[in-house]
């Protein structure tokens, strides 16, 4: 006679060893690998995007009549990519055979070191990009007969055909960008990687709590 499912269920779980909980070991192993792999993938995608953007700048700035500014931005972006690639290579040196916690901690210190170095770099990068990005505007103002004449007749003191006060404003913005470069970079970084960073911190905190 066929047993009812209720009886199968009861009888099955009455047996010894039917309900042995698996050991909570290696709990975070997959999570840590998953999160770091995700970060590496995002970093790679980000680098490719910067590369594409760098080449686009060459074309766009040439079309706007300022190929030198385009080449300058291209050079800056390529330099950023190159530095990032070099950093990514040092990431490979992190020993993945250690425990999840150690792996996460090593990765976290690598990340902090990379961010701190990037902050120094970005302090120069942002103002330089900003000044280079102004070149097509300067070029357009000078190339357009009407605006050029208006500037010449304005009575303002001019440098390279542009009112000096405008250069000063641009310079002040560039200096501010230098001063706040670190913060701008942090904001930029959080916008792209914020969620991964949060998960990483949570994971480390979880493991530390677990180890208590």
């Amino acid at each position: 006679m066929e047993k009812s499912i209720e009886n199968v269920w009861k009888a099955g779980f009455l047996k010894k060893d039917a309900l042995i909980a698996p050991k909570i070991n290696n709990l975070y192993h997959q999570k840590s690998i998953h999160i770091i792999d995700k970060f590496k993938r995002m970093m790679k995608v980000n680098m490719y995007l910067i590369l594409i953007f760098a080449f686009l700048q060459l074309g766009v700035y040439a079309a706007l009549g300022t190929p030198i500014a385009g080449a300058f931005i291209f050079f800056l972006l390529i330099r950023v990519c190159w530095i990032s690639m070099k950093r990514a290579n040092t990431l490979k040196k992190i020993d993945a055979n250690v425990s999840s916690y150690d792996y996460l901690k090593l990765f976290n210190s690598w990340l902090k070191m990379a961010i701190s170095n990037n902050i120094k770099l970005m302090r120069f990068f942002y103002p330089l990009i900003f000044l280079a990005a102004l070149m097509p505007i300067v070029h357009a103002l000078k190339a357009e007969e009407m605006t050029n004449e208006a500037i010449l007749n304005s009575g303002f003191h001019l440098i390279y055909g542009i009112p000096t006060f405008m250069w000063i404003i641009a310079l002040v913005i560039a200096v501010l960008m230098y001063v706040f470069g670190g913060r701008i970079y942090q904001w930029d970084l959080n916008w792209v990687y914020g969620r991964v960073f949060k998960k990483l911190d949570e994971l480390i905190a979880d493991i530390e709590e677990l180890n208590k």
Binding site: I5, V8, W9, A11, G12, F13, K15, K16, D17, A18
Partner: peptide
Amino acid sequence: AFADESLNIL
């Protein structure tokens, strides 16, 4: 596998 074969089938 569970120890009980019927339970596995279920």
